[in-house]
């Protein structure tokens, strides 16, 4: 689940005018240093040292559900393998550092995803290769600006804006992260494109206790705001935080042959 944890680092949530429970800004302000701490706490809360689990990914655009297993080792290793539908079973993605490979058993070929295709869809979903391969810490690529207090769906939260560092290889003009004030769980994350338009929103929902006792969002929903009928929902079926995972889990051999 490190891959998802990595995404948390980037993901934010937003509500537009049509959203029934729109966030209401309040007078509360958060300085840059405090905002940074909020983001640190959020990341710390979402991440473990390693995680293993199984999830389902529903892609609205294609009305298609895929089932996959995942293994993640902090900070930058992850492996995802499709288990259903049967015709796609065995396909997978391996992330090692900044490198991302995909494997398709139909042609028995490992392909490295080049930088030019990082914004392409990952497995036909509304997630991009960039989401999957990005560093797990948001602070590496973004500068954290002072935040403000707000409420979202009745939950008091902090709304923090992040802007790319000058030389960061990121495609978003800014991210806005909304984090619950009480336990720093991420609520939603907004992605703004280079024109400043809201491009995507990620919602973190259905918080449950994982096997390790840590509350974790069991539903991640990425909405494409530029095409209203498109979203991808990741539902976690099982999830376990671990102290570590064997290094051999994250090899091309594992990608090709399973563990």
């Amino acid at each position: 689940m490190r891959m998802m944890v990595a995404m948390v680092g980037l993901m934010a949530v937003v509500c537009l005018n049509e959203c029934p429970l729109r966030a209401q800004p309040t007078e509360l302000q958060l300085g840059a240093a405090e905002a940074e701490k909020v983001i640190d706490d959020m990341e710390e809360r979402m991440r473990g040292k390693a995680s293993v689990g199984e999830m389902e990914m529903y892609i609205k655009r294609w009305d298609r559900t895929m089932r996959m297993k995942f293994w993640e080792l902090y900070p930058d290793k992850s492996l995802v393998r499709l288990t259903a539908p049967a015709e796609d079973a065995g396909m997978g993605s391996l992330k090692l550092g900044k490198d991302l490979w995909s494997y398709n058993p139909k042609i028995d070929q490992v392909q490295k995803i080049p930088p030019s295709l990082m914004l392409d869809s990952w497995m036909g979903s509304d997630f991009t290769n960039d989401d999957i391969s990005r560093s797990s810490s948001i602070k590496l690529d973004y500068t954290i600006e002072p935040g403000a207090g707000t409420t979202y769906n009745g939950v008091e939260s902090w709304r923090v804006t992040l802007r790319p560092k000058p030389d960061s290889p990121v495609v978003w003009e800014k991210l806005v992260v909304e984090v619950a004030r009480d336990d720093y769980r991420p609520l939603r994350q907004e992605y703004y494109d280079e024109k400043g338009s809201l491009a995507r929103i990620m919602y973190f929902e259905d918080y449950r206790e994982s096997k390790s006792g840590k509350p974790y969002p069991y539903k991640w929903r990425m909405e494409n705001r530029q095409d209203k009928d498109r979203y991808t929902e990741m539902r976690i079926i099982s999830m376990e935080f671990k102290e570590t995972l064997p290094k051999k889990t994250f090899t091309i051999r594992s990608l090709k042959r399973g563990r």
Binding site: L96, D99, Q109, V110, Q111, K112, P114, I252, R253, K256
Partner: peptide, 24 residues
Amino acid sequence: LISKKHPDPTDENDLEAYRQMLSE
């Protein structure tokens, strides 16, 4: 995404060989 089909490196753990793979 297109890439040249290579036989697997002798050592599948030879990450450098996979890092050198060219896809376009």
